[in-house]
């Protein structure tokens, strides 16, 4: 087993660990960044409105969802090279695999719908109409539910994955966006974009248990990788909040000029990479000093970001 692991490390080019991939959603391109030199090494066309990206569950590829091209593009995680393009995936805005990988789910923000595909072969299983603006998704740990924020109807929908239907909906604050689930599988953290807090919902009782004040335009989450903290981008107040998932309190704040959106954390846990939507840059924050150490110009409206060498997603 250890031998296989070493072999797999050798199979990766030595420079591969230095790659960051950024989706320039309004330019239809992706930028490949060398994380050591902080320079863009390559920019190329990927498709119309690429917004979010994620690795396949086996880490073989990086999947880019092109909302307006209606396709998924499978990239080499290290080089960004296109390996495969899967057409006829309708308006994939946000994407996710259920734990166990049985399902692959897409939220169709423009078309007010959530689609469920087979996680193994991407065969469409069900299109589920929802209220307006399904934007971000998260699963419970047992893959019984996928939770979808409905940005334009101020709701959260819980879709029963076995029945493939909306099990229930609850009202939230104005324009709920990013959604995260705590490691104990108990609470949903929801960034309330139209206000200045994270709404904490006990999804089993469907009750709001807390509102964590963060900053105007609470938007999206990324775990720090220590199993305890998550970062939240506050788009209108241009800062990042670090939230303790056990105490449900903000424990730190970081500057993030230019409309922070998606984020990733370096494998050593030292840097937070953030897409700055309004200034066409990637902003890098040193977590220890809480200072912006670099801003890298990329394309228009940078959205999704992925670091090859990233912190654990927990």
């Amino acid at each position: 087993m250890r031998f296989c692991f070493i072999l797999s490390l050798l199979a990766v080019p030595i420079w591969a660990a230095n790659t960051a991939i950024v989706l320039n959603s309004a330019d239809e391109t992706i930028s490949i960044i060398d994380t050591k030199t902080y320079s863009v090494t390559k920019t190329f066309r990927i498709g119309k409105e690429p917004h979010h990206l994620m690795a396949t569950p086996d880490d073989s590829y990086l999947i880019v969802a092109n909302a307006l091209s209606n396709d998924l593009v499978f990239l080499d995680r290290a080089t960004g090279e296109e390996k495969r393009r899967l057409p006829n995936i309708s308006d994939p805005y946000q994407i996710g695999f259920s734990p166990g990988n049985k399902y692959f789910v897409t939220a169709s923000l423009r078309l007010h719908r959530t689609d469920i595909y087979s996680g193994s072969d991407f065969k469409l299983l069900k299109r589920i109409p929802t209220s307006k603006g399904p934007s971000h998704i998260i699963f419970d740990k047992n893959s019984t539910m996928v939770f979808v924020t409905l940005q334009d109807s101020n709701e959260l929908a819980a879709i029963d994955l076995a029945k493939m239907e909306v099990a229930w909906k609850i009202s939230l604050g104005k324009q709920p966006a990013g959604v995260w689930i705590t490691p104990d599988d108990k609470h949903l953290l929801i960034g309330i974009l139209g206000e200045d807090y994270v709404q904490v919902v006990d999804w089993r009782t469907r009750k709001t248990v807390k509102k964590i004040r963060t900053g105007a335009g609470a938007h999206n989450f990324i775990p720090q990788g220590d199993g305890r903290h998550v970062f939240l981008s506050n788009r209108a107040s241009n800062k990042i909040s670090r939230i303790d998932q056990q105490t449900l309190e903000v424990v730190d704040e970081f500057p993030a000029p230019g409309g922070p959106d998606c984020m990733d954390v370096t494998a050593d846990g030292k840097q937070l990479w953030i897409t700055s939507r309004w200034i066409r840059k990637v902003t890098i924050v040193d977590i220890a000093s809480k200072k912006v150490i670099k801003q890298i110009p990329v394309g228009r409206s940078p959205h999704g970001i992925y670091l090859y060498a990233h912190a654990p997603r927990s």
Partner: peptide, 10 residues
């Protein structure tokens, strides 16, 4: 933000 229309920000 003031008008509660942040869905339209992009």
């Amino acid at each position: 933000y003031w008008l509660g229309m942040m869905s339209w920000d992009e």
